[in-house]
Simulated assay, not measured.
Amino acid sequence: MFQHSSANSAEGNLIYAPKTTCYSRVLTADGYLNVHIKDIPNKYRRYAKDLGNTLINTRWRWILLTLTLGNGLAWLAFAFGWMCLAMYSGDNGKTDGQPDVCIVGTRHFTGYLLLSIETLTTIGFGEIYPADCLHSWWILALEAMAGVAIEGALVTAVYVKMSRPIKRVNGLLSKKGVVCMRDGRFCLVFRIYDQTGRYWTKSKIKAFMISGKNKRRSSSSPTTCSRSEEVFRMQKLQLEPCELLAGPVDIVHVITSRSPLWTLAASDFLLEGFEIVLTVNGDSATTGQPSEAKKSYTSRDIQWGCRFVPCVEFDENAGSYVVDFNRFNSTRMYATPLCSPAQLRHLISEIDRNDTYGRSSSAGTSFDK
C-alpha cells in the first residue's frame, strides 16, 4: 500500500497511496493507521501461519469469540470422545458397581459433556469420573494437554494485547496545535501531559509532516475525486529537547529555513492539505514497560496566532504545584504576523537594507557639504 522511495532521491521521502475520498488522514486522530490493504495473495494462509500476531492485532470482540469457540468446540469434541468410549466399552448395558465400567455416574451425553468440562478446566471430578480403564486414561491425558494449550495460548494473547507498547492517546497530547511567535521566531507548539507515568523514562518525541498532491485522477470529471492516486511527502520536524514529562510540557518546533513550514502563511493552513503526526515513546517509571502513542493533526487542527493558556500554578497552602487539566487544551490569541516566516524575513531584510542605504546617503551628503 505504501511505497517509500530512497532517502537520497530528489523528491525526498515519498509515499504513494490511492486516494478514495477528497481528503483523508493517513493516520486517524488517535494515531491508528488509516490504510486498507486489499488483494493480498494467500491472505488467510498468512493469517493462519502467524496466528499469534493475528490474535494480538485483532479486536477484543474477536478474541473473546475465539476464546468461547475454542473452549466450546473442545468440550464438545471430548464429550463425543467420552461417549464413544462408553459405547465401545459397553457401559450402556452395565451398572456402576461392575468392575469393567469405564465411566462412572452417567449414561447420557449431558453427563459426558460435564465430564469433558471438568477435565478441560481441571476443576476436579464429582459423581461422574473415569474408572480404571486403559482407554479412559488416554482421553484424560489428551484433554488435559489440550486444556493447557488452549488456555495458555489465549491467556498469553490477552496479556500481550493488554501490555503491548501501543496505547491510546486520550489526554496525553493536546487536541490542537498552535503557531505563535517565541523570542522573535515562528514556532509550532503542541502540549503533552503524561498523567500515568507511562513515558517518563527514556522519553522520545518525534514529529513528521505529511503533505501531498494529486498525481493521477482516474475519473473523467474534474470535480470527482473518488479514485485518484496521491503522492505523499513525509518530512521530519526538528523538535527542541523535551526529556522530563512530569508535568504539562510544550513540544516546540522552531520554524527555520530548513523547516517544511517555512513558506506557509496563515491562509495556507486553511487551504493546504497536510498532516502532522506526533509519536511519543518511553518506558513506565513504575513497571519499566515500554509504550508508544501516536496522534495526528491536520492543517485545520492548528491555530495560527494563538498560545496555550498556562495550566500550572503553585499552591502556597499545599506547598506544591497544581495542574488544572481544564485549561490543558485552552488557547488565547497572541499577536502574530499572518505572513509566512520566509516572507517576514524577506520583509525585514528589505527594511534593514533601506535603512542602511538611507543612513549611507545621509552621511555622504553631510560629508560633501
Score class of each variant (00 low, 15 high):
I251M: 05
P260K: 12
R233V: 09
I251V: 14
Q238L: 11
E243W: 00
P241Y: 09
R233T: 11
D250S: 09
P241V: 00
E243L: 08
L244P: 00
F269Y: 15
I251L: 13
D268K: 08
T263I: 02
H253R: 05
F274D: 08
Q238M: 07
V252L: 06
L245M: 06
A266C: 10
L270T: 15
F274P: 02
V254S: 03
V249I: 03
E272V: 06
L237S: 04
S257Q: 15
I276D: 10
K236D: 05
E243Q: 11
F232R: 13
H253L: 00
K236I: 04
V231M: 15
A266M: 12
L271P: 01
L264E: 10
M234A: 03
F274T: 00
K236T: 08
E272F: 10
A265E: 13
L264S: 12
Q238F: 05
C242R: 00
V231A: 14
A265M: 07
P241I: 04
V249M: 10
Q238P: 02
V231E: 15
V252R: 07
E243V: 08
F232L: 13
F232G: 02
D250C: 08
M234V: 14
P241Q: 03
L244S: 13
L244Y: 12
S267C: 13
S267H: 11
P248K: 00
F269S: 01
E230Y: 02
L261G: 07
V252G: 03
I251W: 00
W262A: 09
C242D: 06
P260H: 05
Q235M: 11
L245E: 00
M234N: 01
I251S: 03
R233F: 09
P241L: 00
E230N: 10
